[in-house]
Design a protein around this nucleic acid. Structure first.
Lengths: 228, 228
DNA sequence: AAAGGGATATGATAATTATCATAATATGAC
DNA sequence: GTCATATTATGATAATTATCATATCCCTTT
């Protein structure tokens, strides 16, 4: 295989490697396009035509949509181990959500038609893609329901623990979201996100230095996330 | 093809017919098992092992899960044109939600292993399934976000319009959900669902006879659903 | 027919959350 | 560096929603 095909960390490659022969892999390798995005840059625009199957190679992104009043709702936060091109890429012509980079990110892009023809000759790949995408959709749905049933404190605690445990693997990290974006994700107002963070600080559950969060009392935060 | 294979209304059959040759269709036809459920009966239990790919042939069902405190959350309502076996059937070993019949329903069941082997020899079927399932997951996600951003009146109005416009195609219909279930679906308390319905009645938007709802002022209801 | 239980209904009150106002701090443009 | 602007922060108040209490209605069982 072409050694210049350097998607070392790309789960899509894992999927392909496990399911494609060398010739097809070389084809993907030569056809794929990598794109780099700086923090804050737009990757996908709601309403635009779906041309590529886009996979996140590194970085962190948010999926969101804009409602009729112009307000944004964040659907999910995606790490490299999650697909970006989830949801309706195989059924819709246009995206019904937007994606933008929360951190400097790199995507790997394959033309939908190329992926389709790869799948056409390879049903094992299809089954694996099916499994992958349904798992991700599942996760988003259960996550949204989980958040909905919590009170404000529980929602903020839940989100902080997500960053700590599933993104940065540390009790201290820089928030990739503004307070406003946190609010858009968990469905509350910006003021109340800020207020809740201040409460956690006063209760000595967190230390806050601007965007930097240090979780001091993880157990309390966990029980707030679960029962709040 | 075996004329006894009488899934006339089954969209799964459409999918299969479009993608399978006669021999494979006959196989599906002889292997499939139809099951009938009475209103209120359980179809799938959260935590149980996934053995079959289950498709709703007729009737109406709810997908729901139970949280740690024992309360139910309804994930979605599914009509025959929606899959029941959506979400994680291709990736999980166990269901992480339950399904039960809101009306007398008939399901069509194929062993997962049979479906897998069908897909294995037929990537076009795989692509169509992929499209179908991603579309459904997409719909659930956008619907949940849509509901979340509304106030109580908007949520109830939204749900009533869904039944009127997408399930019963009439301004008068019998609610397939109790007030409690409506609350579990839109994320509010039972009392407030009842109160909101009463308000709509007082405002002469609806007439209510127990479970029977007659929408009198559809335009007002629509604007409440959109802006409330 | 009576009794029980669940669903529906309504009111009073408490809890939660949003909105509005204002200020301090940080950030980027020039 | 300074100005303009967005973000963060906090308090007061209003709006929304949940909780609790109670009553009625309807259905099933006895």
């Amino acid at each position: 295989m072409d050694p210049s095909c350097s998607c070392e960390l790309c789960e899509l490659k894992d999927l392909l490697v496990a399911n494609l022969d060398e010739d097809h892999l070389d084809l993907v390798c030569s056809e794929k396009v990598e794109k780099e995005y700086m923090q804050g840059e737009s990757i996908i625009k709601e309403g635009s035509r779906i041309k590529d199957f886009t996979y996140l190679k590194s970085g962190l992104v948010k999926l969101f949509r804009r409602d009729n009043t112009g307000k944004e709702q964040i659907i999910s936060i995606a790490k490299p181990m999650d697909y970006v091109s989830l949801l309706s890429v195989f059924s819709n012509k246009k995206y019904n959500y937007s994606v933008s980079a929360l951190e400097d990110s790199v995507t790997c892009n394959i033309k939908m038609e190329d992926l389709r023809s790869l799948i056409n000759g390879n049903s094992k790949l299809a089954l694996n893609l099916l499994a992958k995408m349904s798992k991700i959709a599942d996760k988003i749905i259960l996550n949204t329901l989980e958040i909905r049933k919590k009170h404000l404190r529980g929602r903020v605690a839940f989100l902080l623990l997500y960053f700590s445990q599933e993104v940065y693997f540390s009790s201290e990290f820089d928030l990739p979201l503004s307070r406003k974006e946190m609010a858009e994700y968990v469905g509350m107002t910006t003021e109340n996100v800020i207020r809740t963070l201040s409460e956690f600080r006063k209760d000595e559950i967190l230390k806050i230095y601007g965007k930097t969060i240090q979780i001091v009392n993880k157990d309390t935060l966990k029980s707030i996330a679960e029962f709040g």
